[in-house]
Write a protein that binds this DNA or RNA. Sequence first.
DNA 1: ATGGTAGAATGTCTA
Length: 267
Amino acid sequence: MRLATWNLNSIRARLPRLLAWLERTDVDVVALQETKIDDERFPRAELAAAGYEVASFGFSQWNGVALLSRVGLTDVTVGLPGAPTWTKDTDTPAVVEARAIGATCGGVQVWSLYVPNGRAIGDPHYDYKLQWLAALRDFGAKTLADAPDLPMALCGDFNIAPTDDDIWSVEYFHGSTHVTPPEREAFAAVVDAGFTDVVRPHAPGPGTFTYWDYTQLSFPKRRGMRIDFALASPALADRVTGAFIDREERKGKGASDHAPVVVEFEA
DNA sequence: ATGGTAGAATGTCTA
């Protein structure tokens, strides 16, 4: 079985690329982030024609997550249990954003996660990010406490580079989000809850990235970050046979700023 | 190529 995670940065802008990528990559399950579309307008027919069932969670032009599967898609859960809400100011009601969706696909509980960016150290969004990650850790820990042998994958854009090997320049990111000790500790807490980064052994660093900013010619200059992950429960991690970051997909006109990350495991 | 990001509710926020 082949499982992928990909921050698409708009499924409308990227649908032809997504369909071409699905055809040549031969993946069974895909966790998508930043679909930037509401559920009504999600291009289900095009994906069904390509052989995939769809579960989506999106409200508007921001955020949005989805799961595509050709090995079954059941027990869909919309939203991360216990996730904090967000409001941009005190006059606006706080809402649950479209940042998590889970389902059972081919016997694996797969999650597509879009962790809040954090924006800037000290910004309310930064605290929201840390709260969101704490909810993810709590949910993961509780799920594995109840079902220690469950094959489960936490896939998505975590908006954290866990170590200095995961950024192109320590100096460049000094004072920025994605690399601060509280963010790295929040990521480590998810790992400590029982979830292994199953891609890293197959894509060693330093200098191995999943995201390159659109600006400043970052991609050709190899100035990126490793912020997209597939974290596997013990029962699933034991079955992993390979993984890769599809850097080729970042090339050319009309690419997302994130590359897909693919994991292979024994059925 | 003498510049230099992209996407969405086309205006300005988000990343």
